Simulated scan of single mutants.
Amino acid sequence: MDFFEKSVIELQKQRPIFHSEDDLKLALAFKIKEINPEFEIRLERPVELEMVNRNGMKTTVRAPIDIIVIDTYGNYYPIELKYKTKKTNTLFNEENYILTEHGAADVGRFSFRKDIFRIENYKLKNLNYKCGYVFILTNDKSYFEKNVFEKENIDKHFSFHNGVLLNRIDSSWNYSKIDKTKFTLNENNIWCNIQSKEHWTCKKQHFYKLDLLKDYKITWKNFSIVEKTNFKYCLIKIE
């Protein structure tokens, strides 16, 4: 068991629920530092990453990595995390937690793959990279139970339900679901409406092509149960 897995397990014992993604990020960073006082921690450290759009155009973006851990040998461990919640109002240790309804699971599934891509991209560009992690914690069972591969959802190719093999090849959004009476494919391979406005999947980060370096087996594990609200997590280790 490495330092990150150990930190997650230890965090479970103290914090079964979090107010927000920032709350989770800070708590996890503190736990890593508590267990490994010799490590240095950086939050929201910006890095430059090369991204490729689905029409082949490349762009360099400057974006933060949620947590970067630096060990005593100067090795870097970048961590990307997500906290996706269903609406919940619950009490734990006399502290009230009012969680928002994030919804937009289609975007959430795409973003999970994007986080893996970003850590792999970071790996290729940094000689001091040792190992990276993508971590998602959620009480939204549509992520870990719902197999959207079996449906014709627009995000069907981004499903990362329990037990699935996340294919390294990005099969893109399921554009068979687009209303062809409203959207057509233009000369730049972008779906636009009659006013030449792009479909939301063809805008900004949602238009990135996210081919990965390898396939990843998806496993969800129990994190906590708070007043019948079940939290599960998925951890991807990128060595």
Results as ranks from 00 to 15, higher is better:
residue 53 N to D: 10
residue 83 Y to C: 02
residue 27 A to F: 05
residue 107 V to I: 14
residue 204 K to T: 12
residue 11 L to Q: 07
residue 140 D to E: 08
residue 62 R to C: 04
residue 78 P to E: 11
residue 52 V to M: 07
residue 97 Y to H: 09
residue 209 K to L: 05
residue 190 I to G: 00
residue 190 I to P: 00
residue 120 E to W: 10
residue 233 Y to P: 00
residue 161 H to I: 03
residue 93 N to T: 12
residue 130 K to N: 08
residue 37 P to I: 06
residue 208 Y to C: 09
residue 168 R to G: 01
residue 58 K to H: 11
residue 75 N to K: 13
residue 231 F to S: 01
residue 44 E to P: 07
residue 105 A to F: 14
residue 89 N to R: 10
residue 220 W to E: 02
residue 114 K to F: 05
residue 101 E to Y: 13
residue 44 E to D: 11
residue 177 K to L: 08
residue 43 L to A: 06
residue 187 E to M: 09
residue 134 V to C: 10
residue 213 L to A: 13
residue 45 R to N: 14
residue 128 N to D: 14
residue 99 L to Y: 04
residue 144 F to G: 01
residue 198 E to M: 05
residue 17 I to E: 02
residue 32 I to E: 01
residue 23 D to H: 13
residue 80 E to C: 01
residue 200 W to P: 02
residue 21 E to D: 04
residue 14 Q to W: 12
residue 226 V to F: 03
residue 156 K to C: 08
residue 46 P to R: 12
residue 81 L to H: 07
residue 122 Y to M: 03
residue 102 H to N: 15
residue 84 K to I: 08
residue 236 I to R: 02
residue 147 N to R: 11
residue 123 K to M: 13
residue 174 N to Y: 06
residue 88 T to N: 10
residue 13 K to Q: 11
residue 226 V to L: 04
residue 100 T to H: 13
residue 155 D to E: 14
residue 55 N to R: 02
residue 221 K to L: 11
residue 231 F to R: 00
residue 24 L to P: 03
residue 233 Y to R: 10
residue 190 I to N: 06
residue 23 D to K: 08
residue 15 R to W: 11
residue 175 Y to I: 11
residue 142 S to F: 07
residue 206 H to I: 03
residue 81 L to F: 05
residue 45 R to V: 07
residue 179 D to F: 01
residue 175 Y to A: 04
residue 51 M to I: 09
residue 212 L to C: 06
residue 188 N to S: 08
residue 27 A to W: 02
residue 23 D to E: 09
residue 57 M to N: 14
residue 42 R to D: 10
residue 22 D to G: 06
residue 96 N to E: 14
residue 23 D to L: 00
residue 28 L to D: 01
residue 33 K to E: 01
residue 220 W to Q: 01
residue 142 S to T: 09
residue 8 V to N: 04
residue 8 V to T: 04
residue 110 F to T: 02
residue 73 Y to N: 15
residue 189 N to I: 01
residue 87 K to A: 09
residue 111 S to H: 15
residue 30 F to T: 10
residue 129 Y to F: 15
residue 129 Y to A: 08
residue 26 L to A: 12
residue 136 I to G: 05
residue 193 N to F: 00
residue 135 F to R: 11
residue 225 I to D: 03
residue 35 I to G: 02
residue 92 F to V: 12
residue 228 K to R: 12
residue 77 Y to Q: 01
residue 235 L to G: 05
residue 208 Y to T: 09
residue 155 D to Y: 15
residue 107 V to Y: 13
residue 9 I to K: 14
residue 64 P to W: 12
